[in-house]
């Protein structure tokens, strides 16, 4: 029994089975099933309104599935939500930071929830400072930041604690090319060296191609294609992910 659950935890970070989420008359998710293995960078792609954000919100325990089940790190999102929250970190698609706090104060506030040791908190904030690349500007109030600077602060916040599972909804949206490359590098490094598993959504096919070992294409709340970028390209006879996207979504 113990062994079995241990194996489960080792092999699967996320296990979504037949997830349905209904908002009034809208079926945001309509029987979504996929699995994410430990140590993977898994990419969710799909057109606007396909259900990517809804899926990430359910996995991050913010929303409850209407039906179906989701297990995150072996725990049920409905019954064991508070345990899951200890292990994950979620970067919402549209997020802000407390505008009257400084960048440092914000990072410290966030770090204190997962870390108790003062010295560790300081170290974590330093790590985040490096990830964000904001340097001296971290002393300024968040309300003085540009959109991309705010996003960098939030990405740093999501990664600084080295969570077991990071859920990143369009992590590089609004970032300039250099910072996007920097953030991708960090994500890769964290997965390879720190044992972090990443599930991200993105509209940047180049990014997904570079970063993700596995990709799922969602359309209308269902997975319509799944596999490594190379596998997908081969399957629909396309030369890159953008073409895959166009062919698969176009046909559906």
């Amino acid at each position: 029994m113990l062994e079995a659950s241990g194996v489960l935890e080792l092999s699967l970070a996320i296990e979504a089975t037949d997830v349905v989420k209904v908002f009034g008359s809208i079926h945001a998710l309509d029987g979504l099933s996929f699995t994410v293995k430990h140590g993977e960078i898994f990419g969710l792609i799909g057109p606007n309104g396909a259900g990517k954000t809804t899926a990430l919100r359910i996995i991050s325990t913010l929303l409850k599935p209407t039906s179906g089940s989701v297990k995150v790190l072996g725990r049920d999102v409905v019954d064991e939500a508070s345990e899951i929250r200890r292990l994950i970190s979620y970067l919402p698609e549209e997020a802000g930071a407390y505008k009257n706090l400084s960048g440092y104060e914000y990072l410290e506030f966030m770090a204190k929830f997962t870390i108790e040791d003062k010295e560790m908190i300081r170290e974590t904030v330093e790590v985040a400072a490096k990830i964000s690349g904001l340097e001296e500007r971290l002393k300024d109030k968040v309300k003085t930041y540009s959109k991309g600077m705010k996003r960098r602060l939030l990405v740093a916040r999501a990664l600084m604690t080295k969570p077991k599972l990071a859920l990143l909804d369009e992590p590089t949206s609004g970032l300039d090319v250099l910072h996007s490359v920097h953030v991708r590098g960090i994500i890769k490094q964290y997965v390879e060296k720190e044992g972090v598993t990443v599930l991200l959504s993105s509209h940047n096919m180049l990014e997904v191609e570079h970063l993700c070992g596995k990709v799922a294409l969602i359309n209308k709340g269902k997975i319509v294609a799944e596999g490594s970028p190379a596998e997908l390209e081969k399957k629909v006879n396309a030369s890159n992910l953008e073409e895959v996207f166009a062919k698969v979504v176009g046909f559906v």
Partner: peptide, 13 residues
Amino acid sequence: EKTLETLLTLPIN
């Protein structure tokens, strides 16, 4: 300010 979603996924009651 769109800080609520993040706050609600933190390990805090």
